[in-house]
């Protein structure tokens, strides 16, 4: 039994290591300072992914700013007050939304934001990412909050704490590291999304700091490079992939560090 499960664990980790190693080997040769800060250029003239890194960062940031508070709020509601038909409906729809292919979210945002505005924009991209993020954050938050023992809530209630204070400064801190892990996973998930950005944020060849304009992203840039006909483009796709994976890893480590349990 131990052997079998150990083998499965080794298998799972081996595949991950192989993928990471392969990306590293293929990608590292094309990375240099110019690649990291330049905008894309015609094939053969070099160019880089600087604007794509910025675009991904900006859209992930905005998506997190929209999705995280709503997701956490919804999760708190589901856990603390959601044992009724409304809560059950929200829970069921969230689970459905988590399973919806992300390109459908892209089409939805295309219809409600891009068409009325008559142009693709960083905002539309961020909104798609936020929509993907909300149900994931809501459900993980709910699970984490439900893990906080009832006795801890009662302890606070018995001291004369009103319900909202119990939730806010006893339950939430007790569940904080779990909630942060869920948030982190959802951020990692949206930073890797390509499909919902294709028709919403589109892409851009320039540095763009404004959300009302089309915006470049690492994932779409990788898609473009990877589907191009030239070997040099493929190399740049590998390099951009390595950067993307590295950034996600970096976010993970930072959040781990920030939410380390104090008590």
């Amino acid at each position: 039994m131990t052997m079998l499960t150990a083998l499965c664990a080794i298998f799972a980790i081996t595949i991950l290591v192989i993928i990471l190693a392969y990306i590293a080997v293929r990608g590292v040769s094309a990375i240099n300072i110019e690649f990291l800060i330049d905008t894309p250029k015609p094939v053969g003239e070099g160019g880089g992914i600087g604007n794509a890194i910025l675009g991904s960062a900006l859209m992930t940031l905005l998506a997190t700013a929209i999705g995280l508070p709503i997701g956490i709020g919804a999760g708190v509601y589901l856990a603390e007050f959601g044992d009724n038909w409304f809560g059950n409906t929200v829970r069921f729809l969230s689970d459905t939304l988590i399973g919806v292919p992300s390109i459908i979210v892209g089409i939805f945002v295309y219809t409600i934001v891009v068409l009325p505005m008559s142009r693709q924009s960083g905002f539309a991209g961020a909104l798609s990412l936020a929509i993907i993020m909300i149900p994931i954050v809501a459900r993980t938050t709910e699970e984490m909050i439900r893990l906080v023992p009832k006795s801890m809530r009662e302890g606070a209630l018995a001291l004369g704490a009103p319900q909202w204070r119990v939730t806010w400064n006893i339950v939430m801190p007790a569940a904080a590291s779990g909630i942060a892990t869920g948030a982190m996973l959802s951020i990692a998930r949206i930073s890797g999304e390509t499909a919902p950005l294709l028709f919403t944020a589109l892409n851009s060849r320039f540095y763009n700091y404004f959300f009302d304009q089309p915006m470049a992203s690492l994932t779409v840039q990788i898609y473009n490079y990877a589907t191009g006909p030239f070997e040099i483009e493929h190399q740049m796709a590998w390099a951009a992939t390595l950067i993307l994976v590295g950034l996600i890893l970096f976010i993970n480590i930072v959040v781990r560090f920030l939410t380390k349990k104090k008590y």
Binding site: P149, S151, M152, E154, G155, A156, L157, A158, L159, G160, A161, P162, I170, P173, A174, K261, Y263
Partner: peptide, 21 residues
């Protein structure tokens, strides 16, 4: 009820300290 619970304190069967100092 909040004032009532302040006046009538409670200690539980299983100690339930908060995750604080």
């Amino acid at each position: 009820v909040v004032a009532l619970r302040r006046m009538v304190g409670m200690v539980f069967q299983k100690s339930n300290p908060f995750p604080k100092s």
